[in-house]
Design a protein around this nucleic acid. Structure first.
Length: 139
DNA sequence: GTTCTGACA
DNA sequence: TGTCAGGA
């Protein structure tokens, strides 16, 4: 149903509320926005306004961060951040939510693949930081 | 009072 | 990432 979609993407709360909802600091939230992991709307006064989708997205980001995945890794796991709607009418990213829900195993598979392929080539960034890497690193 | 951007002892 | 400045 489209009505549901508009409600999910409707910009509602300021960063203060989102901080409490996600347990993330404003610094982190803004940082993730800089790296295009989220794209909250803005008020006339340039204040950020987040939608439920943004909050869910942040929770996923938080989960991945806690698993030791860095921004580069999250970008690969998460969806392509909104293709700007040129028609500029209505936001039509229907199944965006579903599409980005990868299973744990799938995520690990991707991460392992990353590590196995050796992320030492120039231009390639390591996706793992700390913990997680030890699961796949030799021994 | 809250949020924003830029910057770094 | 935290935190401070200086403004909106």
């Amino acid at each position: 149903m489209a009505g549901d979609e508009i409600r999910r993407n409707m910009a509602l709360f300021p960063i203060g509320i989102v901080m409490k909802l996600t347990d993330l600091t404003a610094r982190q939230i803004r940082y993730y926005e800089q790296h295009e992991l989220i794209q909250p709307a803005r008020t006339a006064g340039n204040q950020r306004l987040f939608s439920f989708n943004d909050v869910e997205r942040l929770l996923e980001i938080k989960a991945l961060i806690e698993k030791g995945v860095n921004i580069a890794g999250i970008k690969q796991v998460m969806n392509p951040v909104g293709e700007s709607a040129d028609d500029g009418t209505i936001i039509n990213e229907l199944s965006e939510v579903k599409r980005r829900e990868l299973s744990e195993s799938q995520l690990h598979r991707m991460l392992k693949q990353q590590i196995m392929s050796g992320n030492k080539r120039p231009g390639q960034v390591s996706l793992i930081q700390g913990e997680l890497s030890r699961f796949y690193k030799n021994k």
